[in-house]
Simulated assay, not measured.
Amino acid sequence: MKRIVLGGLEGQMGSFLAEALKSEEGIELVAGISELEKLDGEIPIYNDIDKVLREVEFDVYVDFTVYTFAKKASEKMLKAGKAIVIGTTGFNKEDVDYLKEVAKQYGGKGVIAPNFSIGAILINKFTEICSRYFKSFEIVEYHHVNKKDQPSGTATYIANTLDCALKRELETTHIHSIRMPGVLAKHQVLVSDEFQILELIHQSNTRHSFEAGIILAIRKVEELQELVYGLQHLID
């Protein structure tokens, strides 16, 4: 039985995931972390990371909170030798590199993923393939009006993959961010030369599009020997 602590249990993604985990065999949500402590409910909710580490027996820490909290929580969990699954966006290369060193030093492991949708992993892969044949790219990301980071972590990840493939700097790939009501998450990659245009589009219509990837990460994260960035490291 994998015992899970969920950071952001009372948020939109956290509450969705908590409900989804109820039907998952071999996974048990044993505690949550939120702003207000509520220890007398069906699932105890803490507001202190150190208290969770002292009082709760668990295997994997999952985080859907905000960047500042997730960064602090990730560091503390890795220093405690825990496995982490981080879906909170906003982590930059310096953050990830630092946390990789923390994991290596203290025996922690985990995955930080800008997107848990399998489709998002594929659009990143398809974009990389396109870089063998095209040199002109634009990325457009659409999200709901409450999304705090801009551009999205997924768009930045696609741009970084693309720029590495083309051996150029990240700033040379343009990312256009749109925030609109009625939109959950959509990523569009425009590819062209002087004769043709190719469009790659991935759209998440509901949070269920992330569910399979999150569950996959929870089940497989303890097989890792390090901290990795991107869900593709857990896909065969």
Rank of each mutant, 00 (worst) to 15 (best):
I139H: 03
K148G: 15
D50Q: 11
G8T: 10
A20C: 14
S177I: 10
V221A: 10
G119W: 08
I129R: 05
A103F: 13
H144P: 04
P114L: 00
H176N: 10
E138H: 01
M1I: 07
V221P: 06
V60A: 11
I218M: 01
K100N: 11
L162P: 02
D163K: 13
F134P: 00
E138D: 08
Q225K: 15
E223M: 12
V140K: 15
A185W: 14
F91T: 12
I158D: 00
T154E: 07
A212Q: 09
E94Q: 14
S177R: 02
N160Q: 11
I235Q: 02
D63P: 01
E24M: 05
L17C: 06
T156K: 10
I33Y: 15
V221R: 01
V30C: 03
I49K: 13
S192Y: 06
Q150A: 12
R219H: 08
Q150M: 12
S15H: 10
K104F: 11
D50M: 01
N92F: 02
L234H: 01
L231K: 00
L17D: 08
P151S: 01
K148M: 12
G182V: 02
T172P: 00
D95P: 13
A70L: 06
V221L: 01
D149Q: 14
E101Y: 05
A120P: 09
E141T: 10
I121K: 00
A18T: 10
V96K: 07
S23I: 10
I43H: 08
H233E: 07
E226A: 14
E75K: 15
G87I: 04
E138Q: 03
L216C: 07
L122P: 02
K125F: 10
A80Q: 07
V189L: 04
G7P: 13
T161L: 03
G213F: 01
V221W: 04
L6V: 09
R3S: 08
Y157V: 00
T89S: 12
H143V: 08
K100I: 12
I218R: 04
L36G: 09
L17W: 07
E171N: 06
L227F: 03
L122N: 10
K82L: 08
K82C: 09
G182L: 04
E25I: 08
T68I: 15
V85D: 02
A83S: 12
V183T: 05
A165C: 04
I129P: 00
S15L: 13
K186D: 12
G32M: 11
L9A: 13
G230E: 04
K38I: 12
Q150N: 14
S74N: 03
S136N: 09
T154G: 05
A73G: 13
M77W: 05
P181D: 06
A155R: 07
K93M: 03
N160G: 00
E57F: 05
G119F: 00
E226S: 15
V102E: 08
Y67E: 08
P151W: 06
R54F: 12
V52A: 05
I49N: 06
E94I: 09
T127P: 01
Q150E: 07
I27F: 07
T68Y: 15
H174V: 09
